[in-house]
């Protein structure tokens, strides 16, 4: 929980340009052993369980030829996800947080340094990666005081039920999923994190960015409480 909460605060306060600069590629190569079971990289790399990772930097998501992506990844790709330092960092921290229903079953690297090291390694196999973003000046001075209030808000499910009318014009209350994903019975915390990711423009989808954009922290908590509760 604290990990997530920390990430969310960073997203809120510093946009997306907050990753540390310059990891250790050697250590990254060692860490990549955890990825090698599914992903190949370097000369002759091919798609295996996961797509190959040559030239992954600045590549749109979901474009490796002949690789069969999960519906979740296809959805993220059609929403405009591009693999940059920031989005890759976000993804390898917790793949399912960025791309729900991705088939990448990896718990993620919690440690920012591990992620920086791994990305420094992967970056060597991309022909012209974008510059590593410099840490935003505010990133080091995250306001830890604000964050507990956001995640600790106890949502009012009755208000959430009213607000849910805006969701159920598209998302079915029955949990049916066809063209539009189900949003029922998510853990409240995941719901809150995802909605903030839309609100802050980290997740790409114009309708959801618009809908989440005008929800207050309390309203997001209320919706999370309601959708977690319904049968």
């Amino acid at each position: 929980m604290w990990q997530r909460f920390f990430l969310m605060v960073l997203l809120c306060t510093a946009g997306t340009s907050w990753a540390e600069v310059g990891g250790d590629a050697e250590n990254g190569e060692a860490l990549f052993r955890q990825c090698r079971g599914c992903h190949q990289i370097g000369e002759g790399a091919r798609d295996r369980i996961g797509p190959h990772l040559n030239n992954i930097f600045d590549r749109p998501a979901g474009v490796a030829e002949d690789y069969r992506y999960s519906e979740g990844m296809q959805r993220a790709a059609s929403g405009g996800l591009i693999w940059t330092y920031d989005t890759l960092d976000d993804f390898i921290e917790n793949p399912r947080r960025l791309v729900s229903k991705t088939r990448m079953s990896f718990r993620g690297f919690d440690d920012q340094k591990d992620r920086d090291d791994l990305l420094a390694y992967l970056r060597q196999f991309s022909a012209s990666p974008g510059n590593i973003p410099e840490a935003a000046p505010t990133a080091a001075a995250v306001d830890h005081e604000v964050a507990p209030e956001v995640l600790a808000i106890i949502g009012d499910p009755a208000y959430g039920e009213y607000l849910s009318g805006e969701c159920t014009s598209c998302h079915q209350a029955s949990g049916a999923t066809d063209g539009i994903p189900a949003i029922t019975n998510w853990p409240a915390e995941d719901f809150v994190v995802v909605m903030h990711a839309y609100k802050d423009g980290v997740r790409a989808h114009p309708v959801m960015q618009m809908m989440a954009g005008r929800l207050s922290n309390e309203e997001i908590a209320a919706l999370a409480a309601y959708f977690e509760s319904i049968e």
């Binding site: 296809q74 059609s78 929403g79 159920t168 598209c170 079915q172 209350a173 049916a176 063209g179």
Partner: peptide, 18 residues
């Protein structure tokens, strides 16, 4: 564009259920 169309099909099912 294809994803947008799929979304509209999902919306139809959603709104008639609503």
């Amino acid at each position: 564009r294809a994803a947008t169309y799929q979304e509209s099909v999902g919306w139809y099912d959603g709104i008639v259920a609503d």
